[in-house]
Simulated assay, not measured.
Amino acid sequence: MTENLWPVVELRQYTLHPGTRDVLIELFDRELVETQEAVGMRIIAQFRDENAPDRFVWLRAFHDMPSRGAALTAFYIDGAAWREHAPAARATMVDTTNALLLRPSTTTSNFTLPTERPGAAATELPRSRVLATVYYPEGPLAEFAEFFEYRVRPLLVETGAAPIAYFQTDPTPNTFAGLPVREETVFVWFALFEDSAALEAHLDALSRSRTWTEEVRPELSELQSRREDQLRLAPTARSLLS
């Protein structure tokens, strides 16, 4: 079975103290998945960023913005799990403010997820990889989304990176002041690959596409306030998205 009923999504990138990422992941996967979901959120994915050894990336989702505020309050303010494990988690963290609040760009561009994740004892790491790309549109989001749909997305599909989901900034005011979010306009897409080799094959094919290098890539650059961020992500053993 699958689900896609969580239209408010956070993309969170944490900078950690050197050598502590595995410590945080072990704690997170063991203690901070079901305890968050129990109060009304969905933990979509947990990742190691393969380009940044001290970065932990994760995604969580909510039914709507009011329930987001209630769920975060229940977990961070009233919940026993965070009260117990916060000192150990915070000991690994340098910065947790790199967070984006997103909503699906279209009615069909949200994640479609399995309803069952690997169990609490899971240790086997998936071979799959996720590519997450964050664009920074300079003009209206609607125009950029149309450009992505008709100019960028077909080339991604052609080169083996069919997007599994894509999102844009949710402009709704933050409903939990204790966790700030980045107040900037973004457009984010995700692709899932069988393994690292498949991801590399896509990047190589894209770089050899004349349509991409001579037409679409220059247009994309002109539409952004700065160059996009690209995250190469390895799912943890308990990531729902893998």
Rank of each mutant, 00 (worst) to 15 (best):
Ala86Trp: 07
Ala88Arg: 15
Ser67Leu: 12
Arg68Asp: 07
Pro87Ala: 12
His85Tyr: 15
Asp64Asn: 15
Pro66Asp: 12
Met41Cys: 14
Val39His: 01
Glu37Arg: 06
Phe56Ser: 02
Arg68Gln: 11
Ile44Val: 15
Met65Ser: 10
Arg68Ser: 03
Asp78Gln: 15
Tyr76Met: 09
Pro87Trp: 11
Ala45Cys: 05
Pro87Lys: 11
Leu59Tyr: 04
Asp54Asn: 15
Glu37Ala: 03
Val39Arg: 03
Glu50Val: 13
Ala86Ser: 15
Arg60Asp: 10
Trp58Pro: 03
Ala81His: 04
Ala89His: 05
Thr73Lys: 14
Trp58Ala: 02
Ala70Asp: 12
Ala81Lys: 06
Ile43Trp: 01
Ala38Tyr: 04
Val39Ser: 05
Ala52Pro: 01
Met65Val: 15
Pro53Asn: 12
Gly79Pro: 04
Trp82Thr: 10
Pro53Lys: 10
His85Cys: 02
Asp54Leu: 05
Ala89Asn: 04
Trp82Asp: 08
Arg48Glu: 07
Ala38Lys: 11
Gly79Phe: 04
Ile44Pro: 00
Arg60Cys: 08
Asp64Gln: 10
Arg48Gly: 00
Asp54Arg: 08
Ile77Asn: 14
Thr73Ser: 14
Phe47Ser: 01
Gly40Lys: 05
Phe47Pro: 00
Trp82Met: 11
Gly79Thr: 11
Arg55Lys: 13
Arg42Asp: 06
Ala88Pro: 03
Ala74Phe: 02
Arg55Pro: 01
His63Tyr: 08
Val39Ile: 13
His63Pro: 00
Arg48Ile: 03
Ala71Pro: 01
Ile44Thr: 06
Glu37Lys: 01
Trp82Arg: 10
Leu59Lys: 04
Met41Asn: 13
Ala80Trp: 07
Arg55Ser: 11
Glu84Lys: 14
Leu72Lys: 10
Pro66Trp: 10
Val57Gln: 00
Val39Glu: 03
Phe62Val: 09
Ile43Asp: 01
Gly79Ile: 11
Ala80Ser: 14
Asp64Ile: 11
Ala45Val: 04
Pro53His: 09
Arg48Val: 09
Ala89Tyr: 05
Asn51His: 11
Ala81Asn: 07
Ala52Ser: 13
Phe62Cys: 07
Pro66Met: 09
Ala81Val: 07
Pro87Gln: 10
Ala88Lys: 15
Ala74Gln: 13
Ala81Asp: 09
Asp54His: 13
Ala80His: 11
Ala70Gln: 14
Ala45Leu: 02
